[in-house]
Design a protein around this nucleic acid. Structure first.
Lengths: 190, 190
DNA sequence: TGCACCTATTCAACTCGTTGACTACACGAG
DNA sequence: CTCGTGTAGTCAACGAGTTGAATAGGTGCA
C-alpha cells in the first residue's frame, strides 16, 4: 500500500498515464519513490477498482490510445488520510554503493573507486535537472517570495531535500575517492 | 542476491548469529541495508548451502544455543568479486516521509509537521550513536591518523556518509518545519 | 506470582517488486 | 526497406521482502 501513496502524490500534479508515471512523471515524486511499469499498471488497476482514481481514455492519432488517470474525491480524501497517519519506521535506506564501500578493504579498491566516480557523475546530472526544475518553479522569484505565494510547497520542499542529498553525495564521494587513493598508494608504495 | 552482499559485508566485522544481524549487528551495515529476521535466516541458510559461510554452534547456558556464521574463503572471494562488479543503477531511494511532504498541500499540515519532528528526533539519536562509534574507531587519533593507519577504512567511510546524511536530515527538517508553520499561519490567519 | 519483555530460531502465507518478452503502430536515419 | 527508437500497454514467472505467529527458556519488576 506504499506505492499507492506515491502514485497519489504524483497525481496531485495533474492527470497522468501509466506510461507517464513509469517514466518518472516529470521527475517529481520519482526521485524518492520509483517503480517499474508493471508495478504501476497493476497498482493503477487496483486503485481504479477501489475508486481512488478514474481513467479517461484519450484517443490519439498516430499513437496508441492512452488512459489518463486522475484522483477522485475519494482519492483526495485518501491523500489527506495518508498524510495524517502516524509515520512508520524511519525508511530503511538501501544503497548498494555503500555495501561495496563497506567491503572495500577486502575487495577491489580501484573498482570501488570507479563505482564512486560513476555515482558522482549522475549526482551531478541529477543536480542539474533539479536546478532547472527549481528555476522553473521559482520563475524569477526568490525562495521567500515563492513560499509566501499561494502555490503548492510540498514539491518544492522535496526538491530541496533532493538537492541537498545530491550535493552531499558529491562532497562525500570526493572525500572518499581521495582517502581510497591514499590507501591504494600506501599499498603499492609501501 | 543483494541482501547476500550486505550480509557478507557485515560478516567482515567478525562472526555473527542471525539474531545479531537482525538487530543491526552493531549498527554497521544496518544503516544502509537492513532486513527482517526471516529474510536473514533464509538467506543465511542459502549462503551456507552455497559454501560462502560456515556455522559454528555455540552452546549457551540459560539461553538458546546460537549459530555463529563467518565467511569462508569462498565467501571472501565472493566479496572481492562483488566489489569488482559494475555498479547497478543508482539506488532508488524510498522515503515515506518525502511522499507525505510532497502531498502536504492536499493533506494535513500539522500531521506532516509532527512526522518531520519525529524524523528529527531519531536523526538526532542516530547521529549520537554514530558519534560514539566514531570515537570508538578513532580511539583518540585524528581522522588523518586513522586513515594513515592500517585498519579497515570501509566502515569508517560509510559511517561518515551516514553522519552527513543525518545532519542533512536535521537541517532540511528544521527548514521544512519553519516553512510549513509559515504556511499554516497564512491559512488560518488570512 | 504473574506479566511483560529478551534471546534465538522457525513456519506459513502473503504482497511487493523485478525481469524479460511480446503486441502494435509511427517516425526518422541510412 | 529495414533498423532502431519512442509511445502505450499487457502477460507470465520469479525472487525479494513483510507480517504474524509459534516455540521455549530466562530475566526483571512490582
Amino acid at each position: 500500500m506504499a506505492l499507492r501513496n506515491a502514485v497519489m502524490a504524483a497525481l496531485l500534479e495533474g492527470e497522468a498515464s501509466g506510461y507517464d508515471l513509469a517514466k518518472g512523471f516529470d521527475a517529481s515524486v520519482a526521485n524518492f519513490w520509483m517503480a517499474t511499469p508493471q508495478q504501476l499498471y497493476r497498482e493503477l488497476e487496483r486503485m481504479e477498482g477501489d475508486g481512488l482514481i478514474t481513467a479517461r481514455v484519450v484517443e490519439q492519432e498516430r499513437r496508441p490510445n492512452k488512459r489518463l488517470f486522475s484522483l477522485t474525491a475519494a482519492g483526495l480524501e485518501a491523500v489527506r488520510a495518508y498524510t495524517a497517519e502516524p509515520p512508520g519506521k524511519p525508511t530503511a535506506i538501501r544503497d548498494e554503493l555503500m555495501v561495496k564501500v563497506q567491503s572495500v578493504d577486502a575487495g577491489d579498491i580501484e573498482a570501488v573507486r570507479s563505482a564512486i566516480a560513476e555515482r558522482m557523475e549522475w549526482a551531478t546530472a541529477k543536480l542539474a535537472r533539479y536546478t532547472r526544475l527549481q528555476q522553473r518553479l521559482l520563475d524569477g522569484r526568490t525562495e521567500d517570495e515563492y513560499f509566501a505565494g499561494g502555490e503548492r510547497i510540498g514539491p518544492y520542499l522535496t526538491l530541496l531535500r533532493g538537492m541537498a542529498f545530491e550535493r552531499d553525495n558529491l562532497h562525500w564521494s570526493e572525500m572518499a575517492l581521495n582517502r581510497l587513493e591514499q590507501r591504494a598508494a600506501a599499498f603499492s608504495g609501501g
